[in-house]
């Protein structure tokens, strides 16, 4: 007796047998048992449960989603531009300003409006052309270092006056300057981003106010 082929049996899992196939299955235990096993196998495959991916998968996916701009939360946006690499006081100021500024401003600020006593524009202008988030992060750090040096000179100069009185506003301007650089670098990458525009407006007005206070106190 010639048995049904494996492929024919697999076909019969969900197709109707011909009269001769039906007759064979009736008389042959080997083929009917094999067909039964194949049906159980297909049933078991259908019942296979979903598989839980490793928790690491989300972490690497999240990084990619942030890098590709598909996750655009405030904190992720800051991380994307390397701002977490800045000292903690700048991050704290950033958080406060974000809270104050929200994302309501849709304006672009021209560079001219940023000119001020500390001529930070020179530092910003010296940063290289920025194309990627990594480059922005590096540029922010470089601008930070340059600014710190400038600030040191400023502080030595101002130390001739009442030191204690100067300390607090200076620290605050310091924080604002760092944030200004960071937000300007970020705006180079995302010039129409309302969040960064709002941030920049806030930084500029607060810095203006602080510098006024400093010059009045001297």
């Amino acid at each position: 007796m010639e048995h049904l082929s494996s492929e024919k049996l697999a076909y019969l899992v969900d197709e109707r047998p011909s009269p001769s196939e039906r007759a064979h299955l009736k008389s042959c235990t080997r083929c009917s048992e094999e067909l039964n096993e194949l049906r159980i196998q297909s049933h078991n495959l259908l019942e296979l449960a979903a598989l839980r991916p490793s928790p690491d998968n989300w972490e690497s996916l999240e990084t990619r989603l942030v890098n590709e701009g598909l996750i655009r939360n405030k904190q992720e946006r800051f991380r994307r531009f390397g701002i977490t690499a800045l000292p903690i006081w700048i991050q704290a100021t950033a958080a406060i300003l974000l809270f104050l500024g929200g994302a309501g401003f849709g304006l672009n600020i021209g560079k001219d409006e940023t000119s001020n006593a500390l001529s930070l524009d020179k530092i910003i202008a010296s940063t290289p052309e920025i194309e990627t988030a990594d480059e922005a992060a590096r540029a922010v750090v470089l601008a930070e270092q340059a600014y710190m040096q400038a600030l040191l000179h400023f502080r030595q100069f101002s130390d001739k006056d009442d030191e204690n009185q100067m300390d607090d506003p200076l620290n605050r301007v310091e924080a604002l300057e760092g944030l200004l650089v960071a937000s300007q670098e970020a705006l180079r990458l995302a010039p129409t981003d309302p969040l960064f525009n709002g941030l920049l407006i806030n930084v500029l007005s607060q810095r203006q106010e602080m510098l006024k206070q400093i010059s009045e106190s001297r």
Binding site: A50, P53, W58, L65
Partner: peptide, 21 residues
Amino acid sequence: IQGDGSAIRSLYERYSPRVYA
């Protein structure tokens, strides 16, 4: 769609087992 990380995470939690499988 607006880029909210926690919403994306929730969708991921819900569907990642079927997608991964």
